[in-house]
């Protein structure tokens, strides 16, 4: 059966919610749309800079840069995203980290005008690419050349935001290959990679190694 690779492009939309201090920030984290949490934590994976940025997500960056709370920023920067299989788990972890910090620290700093944190959600527009494959060898070749937005869509966005295509990819791999390969891919989570290209290389390495071991 042919498998058609899909991808998504993202449009950003203001949620209308913003925070000027850590208490307001926490209150919004508790209620804001999941796609806003996703956007602020993960979008940096698709931003490319030749020099690494100090913090890997928007929350950590704002808390360090504007609220001048580097300890909390570092805690939020070092989230192990492998722990989170859905965005509600991630939201709860963010809430716990901030509440724990507030319990131990008197945080009074407040953002100046123009420095507020604006919560932005992303709209996913999902569409098929021109890449269709019939077996894993062809899929491997495509994974080597398909653009990074597709990798991000399958292995990050589709798993967390929905869209269903990671599930379809899983089913296709299970039908064509094995449960074991899918398990290895399931255990792949984006943080720990400097960028999406490194993640692509790891996906290719996993598949190639699997093929080598099962020749």
């Amino acid at each position: 059966m042919d498998f058609i690779f899909h991808k998504a492009r993202y449009q950003f939309e203001l949620t209308g919610k913003k925070a000027r201090d850590l208490h307001e920030f926490l209150a919004v984290i508790k209620e804001v749309n999941e796609s806003s949490i996703f956007n602020h934590i993960y979008h940096a994976l698709l931003d490319y800079h030749l020099l690494p940025l100090e913090y890997p997500n928007d929350f950590a960056y704002w808390i360090a840069d504007v609220l001048h709370e580097p300890v909390l920023a570092e805690r939020l920067a070092n989230l192990d995203l492998r722990e989170f299989h859905d965005l509600e788990m991630l939201r709860n972890r963010l809430i716990n980290i901030i509440e724990d910090y507030l319990a131990m620290h008197d945080v009074t700093s407040r953002a100046g005008i123009g420095q507020e944190f604006h919560f932005v959600r992303c709209i996913s527009v999902v569409f098929p690419t021109r890449y269709a494959v019939t077996n894993m060898n062809e899929a491997l070749d495509i994974l080597k050349e398909i653009d990074l937005d597709s990798i991000f869509y399958y292995f990050v966005a589709s798993r967390l935001l929905g869209g269903g295509h990671y599930r379809l990819l899983s089913q296709w791999i299970l039908e064509n290959d094995s449960h074991e390969l899918m398990e290895k891919l399931d255990n792949l989570y984006p943080y720990g990679f400097a960028n999406m290209n490194d993640m692509r290389n790891e996906i290719i390495r996993i598949i190639e190694r699997y093929f080598w071991e099962h020749l």
Partner: peptide, 13 residues
Amino acid sequence: MLSLEDPSGIIRL
């Protein structure tokens, strides 16, 4: 333009 067609947050073309 495409986002206006569906406020859900995931638009499938």
